[in-house]
Nucleic acid binder design. Structure first.
Length: 599
DNA sequence: ATAGGGTTAG
């Protein structure tokens, strides 16, 4: 017997008091069984008293079930199909909404198509959910089609929600230019529209543009930045490593009384830590009243990348005393702390306790940290043993950690083996190719060198361009390797010639180890003097007063030659030079570096 | 009755 017949048989007058049982439940609500149980109780009651026949009530029930937890979506679907009468647009929307936020967003699209096929009309509420699904799927073509339908049905120009969804969708799929056009064209924009655009630029690695949009936003009277705006802006500063700008944004937050909740507070702590201002980060951290696992994780890794590993481990203990359970990310921070400080035994111990004691199963990243840790200590055999022993399939990144160690400790045989493993997993891996080429070159196997190099050329394998950022008076200057586009180019190159001269007087001999990793032999010499961090440091020396620290943010690892040059430059010019690497800080002072020459 | 923007590491 269909359920709706059961409902009819037991029908009693449906009273309004039942509506209060159907409370709004967001996605954050837990997936506890009692939640489903509660919903089932309401469902049963509605069948008994006939409430299910009321389309508004049934709709609310379906919405509540669909939104409560993705695992309940099958249940919501079964309610929908057994109603005994046709569902309305609200119900379709609820199903699309539920699936858009689930791990299977493709189902949302399926429901949307079904809805159209069966002749139901989508409304303005439908499209934000549908676009959300497209965004989750990162499916540009699908979204383009949906956008077409939105235009055809006349929704494009009249709904700020749909416009913002479109901006967010295009930005997430890498089409930030289209997102920008839509934003500029929208007849109506509110703070969320601006936030979508700012976050879109951050996602597209266009951090300066994100900040420009924020500045443009401040010139307008019709919109006021909120906590989420600032979250995006702070993130942009973090990625840029732009301390001056970040501090300015922080001041803006205080001046405008923007609410600093746990999220924004965490973002600020992270910004200061990753801009090398660890004291400010710590002071801020202590002032955040409700610290969650992310806040702690950010602070721990902040200490670690700034070379304060034992403080990082102390904080890890304090976190547990505070009753916060570490998660997977926390362990990445903690294990990399050990790695930065060479605390091998501590690291191994923590890895050993992860699954049993902390109930966080180690992932491949965690093993990667420990391989790095062992590799750094020169315990290459143990690192290899670990890779062979883990219950997971080693990936390129894990092998890569060992390759770096083989390079640092000049273990040619193991390195060759590792590089070959990596190329099996990723035939286009640049680092592995270059390593092999170096190994062959160093052992005089020229035919093989030629083979690797020509195959790299054929396959178009190239290292991503290195870039260095340096901040000056609120502006961020970017240099690429061999860059001649900066207005001060001639001064910069003259300065570099002078630096070069002083370096050789100090007995600096160019090391070409790292350079072999970049390019062909014949281009080597030229490229050496043009690495982006060298241009940035020359620029910094020209434009800052004597004694001021020079802060540079680099997107890749520093090469051997730049590293040893920076050490000497810090001594010759008596400057603190701080370079943020792809993964850690180098504080160059008086001729030495905080990383102890392992990176 | 329903909608759009969100923090951590690698």
């Amino acid at each position: 017997m269909p359920l709706w017949l059961v409902a009819v048989e037991t029908r009693t007058k449906f009273s309004n008091s039942n509506i209060s049982l159907l409370t709004n439940r967001g996605f954050a609500s837990s997936s506890s069984p009692s939640n489903v149980k509660h919903l089932k109780q309401i469902h049963a009651k509605l069948i008994r008293n006939g409430g299910i026949l009321d389309i508004l009530t049934a709709g609310k029930l379906i919405a509540d079930i669909a939104v409560s937890n993705p695992s309940n979506l099958d249940y919501a679907k079964s309610v929908l199909t057994r109603l005994g009468y046709p569902p309305n647009t609200f119900m379709w929307n609820s199903m699309i909404r539920g699936y858009a936020h689930s791990p299977i967003p493709r189902e949302a699209i399926f429901f949307y198509h079904q809805m159209l096929e069966k002749g139901f009309s989508p409304n303005n509420y439908t499209y934000p959910f549908v676009l959300k699904a497209c965004t989750q799927l990162m499916d540009l073509n699908l979204g383009l089609g949906i956008h077409g339908t939105i235009i055809k049905r006349g929704f494009e120009d009249c709904d700020v929600f749909i416009q913002t969804s479109l901006v967010s969708f295009y930005a997430s799929c890498g089409s930030i230019a289209i997102a920008r056009q839509l934003f500029d064209r929208s007849p109506e924009r509110d703070v969320t529209s601006w936030n979508a655009l700012i976050k879109g630029y951050v996602r597209s690695n266009r951090h300066m543009d994100a900040i420009s949009v924020f500045r443009a936003m401040q010139d307008r009277r019709d919109v006021q930045a909120d906590e989420i705006t600032l979250l995006g802006v702070v993130l942009a500063c973090t990625q840029l490593g732009a301390l001056e700008m970040g501090s300015w944004v922080h001041a803006y937050i205080d001046k405008n009384c923007v609410k600093v909740g746990t999220s924004l507070g965490t973002a600020l702590v992270d910004m200061y830590a990753r801009c090398g201002s660890i004291d400010v980060a710590m002071a801020l951290f202590k002032g955040i009243p409700e610290r969650d696992v992310r806040t702690w994780s950010v602070m721990i890794s902040g200490l670690a990348i700034n070379g304060l590993a034992s403080e990082a481990l102390d904080l890890f203990l304090e976190m547990q005393r505070d009753g916060i359970d570490p998660d997977s990310v926390t362990f990445t921070s903690v294990l990399s702390s050990c790695s930065h400080a060479g605390m091998v035994e501590e690291g191994l111990q923590i890895l050993g306790k992860m699954g049993n004691f902390y109930k966080v199963e180690p992932t491949i990243e965690h093993y990667g940290c420990v391989v790095d840790l062992l590799g750094r200590a020169g315990r290459l055999d143990e690192a290899l043993g670990l890779i062979r022993r883990i219950p997971l399939k080693p990936d390129v990144v894990l092998w890569g950690a060992l390759l770096v160690a083989c390079r640092a400790h000049k273990n040619v045989e193991m390195g060759e083996m590792v590089a070959k493993e990596m190329l099996k997993l990723d035939p286009y891996h640049c680092g592995a190719h270059v390593f092999l080429s170096n190994v062959y070159a160093s052992t005089g196997r020229w035919a093989q060198v030629e083979q690797v190099r020509s195959s790299m050329k054929e396959q178009g394998i190239r290292k991503p361009p290195g870039s260095s950022l340096i901040e000056l008076g609120g502006d961020v200057h970017e240099f690429l390797a061999g860059d001649r586009s900066h207005p001060q180019t001639s001064e910069i190159y003259m300065m570099w010639d002078e630096i070069s001269r002083l370096l050789s007087l100090e007995g600096h001999v160019r090391s070409t180890n790292g350079v072999l990793f970049d390019i062909d032999e014949e281009e080597k010499e030229q490229a050496l003097s043009q690495h982006s961090e060298k241009l940035a440091v020359a620029f910094g020396l020209i434009n800052t007063r004597q004694g001021a620290a020079i802060r540079i943010v680099k997107n890749l690892r520093v090469c051997d030659d730049c590293h040893s040059a920076m050490k000497l430059i810090s001594k010759i010019f008596d400057r603190l030079i701080i370079i943020r690497d792809r993964c850690r800080f180098h504080h160059f002072k008086d001729g030495s570096c905080s990383c102890s020459d392992y990176w």
